[in-house]
Design a protein around this nucleic acid. Structure first.
Lengths: 338, 338
DNA sequence: CTGAAAGCGCTTACAG
DNA sequence: CTGAAAGCGCTTACAG
């Protein structure tokens, strides 16, 4: 089954390839009506479908972008992907999804491959460990946007949550309900991952601002599989925290696992707020107070900023344009007075 | 910043483009060691990265596949995507993720675009409404695999759950615990979506096999936003069901929302089993008995079957190869005796 | 208003 | 062991 090409269409319609190409690109300015009709008919009859790879080679654009998420297991990642996909679909762009698995090597491999494939731009949740590579892309003025995390020394547009605000919203809610000994548990801050670092610093500032006890033992950032034992330690303190802020969805699930296994009552034995409005927050017993990220807006913005850069490649930016999105407190039961 | 091409490398190394190309494709058979080194050096010095679009045009392969999910909101979809991505990453294939949003028009648009982009093959969760289009792809021997759903009259390899088994596992678990009036709630069966149809038929067969009461009122399939009111009707029956099987994750969440709002106790007021082992099943109060799909295996298999077809395009298959995966019952508390 | 020609950056069969 | 030439399927500046 030979595939039909523009040459076949041209022959069939009795015109030149150039003219067919004009037609395909909707440059009808000077095209005779008859010519147009002949081409339309030929395309129809032959079932012609333009080869976009050939077009891309010539035009140096693939109308495809890459999205490299740090860890596709976070609900946040999949919601962002969905938002980006929605936005791109409108503009007939496609997205290639890559999961770096928090591995800088894998991230590098993906970046290299995406660029070899002439992908027009990339949205990255950066692992943070490929600074040289990021720098090279900036130098080459390659369109790129960071999401969720950023690398402070680099002039790359970044879409971030106002993470400190997220923590302070949570602490304020705890304080309003009379909690004083408040802890925070996040996944590992190995490699200085922005949201984790900032959520902890936001936590510290808020604790201080409210004159609450600040204990190192109340702050845990660890690998997922270590969280259970860390919680054990925290709960066994002489003065254990009465409330905990979960740094993200995976941390929250670990905490809920712990409280369930140890028959701790929420919020009586331990009050809880989670950053990320997980799907089950409203139906859990008790329902869980969360800090929601505007995931849809953030994904959409990232896509918009990237596509703008792609369309507008000459305008190089000199400084990182950091776009902070506001988190929103959703009050439910897990943080209430007891 | 002019991009460096194979011509630049050839000049820099003092050899021909052909030889550089041989090098890039690792055909070292007859290559002098010195030549190899010169090329390596030139590539290094120029920071050359082959243009895969050009290669694709010539080789008629993009080492990229498309994945069109019906609805990216299901956890099942994202797990499948992850599994496919993992598998493809090993083989240096990339995946373009598309969300058809259960809209046949959108599905069609994606299929057309993916083919125009010369994507090597597609994994589809078919909406079912583009039968002509599917048929044309079969005729053209275009590599394609169906996942989660299939279209019975078509000879397309399909990766499916043994859906009837999934339902019967659930019914048996209910029966073991003494439940007799058992209902099922799924999202809409408009357009004959395979898993929903089969889960309902499996439910019916199992109910019959156990000699349990079979009532039309115990069977609901509806759009997400209608489920609350349908549950209201079901619960208000003179003889309401004592147990409900949730057809998928979204249906389960609706049911939990309903029971929570109406302060129904699980399993005392209503026992529950959900198909899809949702992330929160183990930490919910009470923990939720589920029927797990082997999502990782299914995604991996789909990718494997597709890549085999791509590698092996001559071997056309005559009949649909339907691959049924076994569901697994995970007993927790929501289905226990009261 | 339309066509001939060159070119995008590769690969490949063939010649030497 | 290596190179010249043709070709993948488009687009585009230019000529007429």
């Amino acid at each position: 089954m030979r595939t039909v090409t523009i040459t076949d269409v041209a022959e069939h319609a009795g015109v030149s390839k150039s003219t067919v190409s004009q037609f395909l690109n909707k440059r009808y300015d000077y095209m005779a009506k008859k010519t147009k009709e002949k081409i339309e008919l030929a395309i129809e009859e032959l079932g012609y479908r333009p080869n976009i790879v050939a077009r891309s080679l010539k035009q140096k654009s693939t109308t495809t972008i890459g999205v490299i998420v740090a860890n596709i297991l976070h609900e946040f990642s999949t919601q962002i992907i969905r938002a980006i996909e929605d936005f791109c679909h409108e503009l007939d762009f496609h997205i290639i999804v890559c999961n770096a698995d928090d591995d800088p090597e894998k991230e590098k491999k993906y970046i290299d491959m995406l660029r070899a494939k002439q992908i027009d731009g990339i949205i990255i949740f950066p692992t943070g460990d490929n600074v040289e590579l990021y720098k090279r892309m900036i130098m080459e003025n390659y369109p790129i946007v960071f999401l969720d995390r950023h690398v402070p020394e680099l002039a790359i547009s970044s879409i971030l949550l106002d993470n400190e605000k997220a923590s302070s919203l949570a602490i304020e809610e705890f304080v309003r309900n009379g909690y004083e000994r408040i802890g925070i548990v996040t996944t590992s801050t190995f490699r200085n991952i922005t949201p984790r670092i900032e959520r902890i610093s936001g936590y510290k500032k808020a604790i201080e601002a409210h004159g609450l006890p600040m204990e190192d033992e109340y702050i845990k950032s660890a690998e997922i599989h270590e969280i259970q034992s860390d919680l054990q330690v925290m709960v066994s303190l002489p003065n254990p925290p009465q409330a905990i802020l979960a740094g993200n969805d995976l941390a929250l699930i670990e905490i809920l696992k712990y409280t369930k296994e140890n028959q701790m009552k929420i919020p009586e034995d331990l009050a809880l707020i989670g950053i990320d409005d997980v799907s089950f927050a409203g139906i859990y017993h008790p329902s869980i107070t969360t800090i929601a990220q505007p995931t849809f807006d953030m994904g959409k913005r990232a896509a918009k900023v990237l596509l703008d850069k792609i369309t507008n490649k000459d305008s190089r930016e000199e400084v990182a344009n950091i776009d902070r999105f506001k988190p929103r407190l959703i009050v439910r039961v897990s943080s209430s007075k007891t």
